[in-house]
């Protein structure tokens, strides 16, 4: 019976805590959404970024993979899924490049939101994001190197 008495308090605590967490996440993510929309409107994700070309080549990716990579990295796999799929079809990315893109993005996408959510709960950004980037770059580069004898 002791537990029954604790339930209303838990309900209240849950409602309060839940609303506060919603507010906190919204305060981080909503400005990001505005930022992404602005960045997209000014074509940031569609620019060729020539300096990144040699880096991409190391990952086994051609220039055509840059747009889906940036979209996936910053907009997330779901949010950017439409872009990702339509662009890799449109640009006729070769099968190998699609695999490289998928390997990179499954380990490392939507990096800003994902990290922010757990930072709100007290997590360390370095500990959560560092290994993901290292894994994504390492795996993709390894795959590219293995393919070229």
């Amino acid at each position: 019976m002791e537990t029954l008495a604790a339930l209303p308090a838990a309900l209240w605590q849950g409602l309060q805590g839940g609303l506060i967490l919603c507010l906190e996440i919204a305060l981080v993510v909503v400005p990001l959404l505005f930022g992404y929309e602005l960045a997209a409107a000014y074509g940031i994700f569609e620019r060729p970024w020539p300096r990144l070309k040699p880096l991409l080549a190391r990952l086994g990716l051609g220039p055509g993979a840059l747009v889906p990579l940036l979209a996936g990295l910053f907009l997330g796999l779901i949010y950017g899924a439409g872009i990702l799929l339509s662009l890799s079809d449109e640009q006729d990315l070769p099968r190998q490049e699609r695999l490289a893109l998928a390997v990179f993005l499954v380990t490392c996408h939507a990096v800003v939101e994902d990290t922010a959510i757990f930072m709100l709960l007290g997590g360390s950004a370095l500990a959560m994001l560092g290994p993901r980037v290292v894994l994504a770059v390492g795996l993709t580069a390894w795959l590219a190197r293995r393919r070229k004898p």
Partner: peptide, 26 residues
């Protein structure tokens, strides 16, 4: 603990939805 949870889940999450997306890619 939050960092460990955040790292595991950062790499592997929303598997039902996202696997469908990856399926379109490879």
């Amino acid at each position: 603990q939050v960092s460990v949870l955040g790292l595991i889940l950062g790499i592997a999450h929303s598997l039902l939805v996202e696997t469908a997306v990856v399926r379109g890619l490879t």
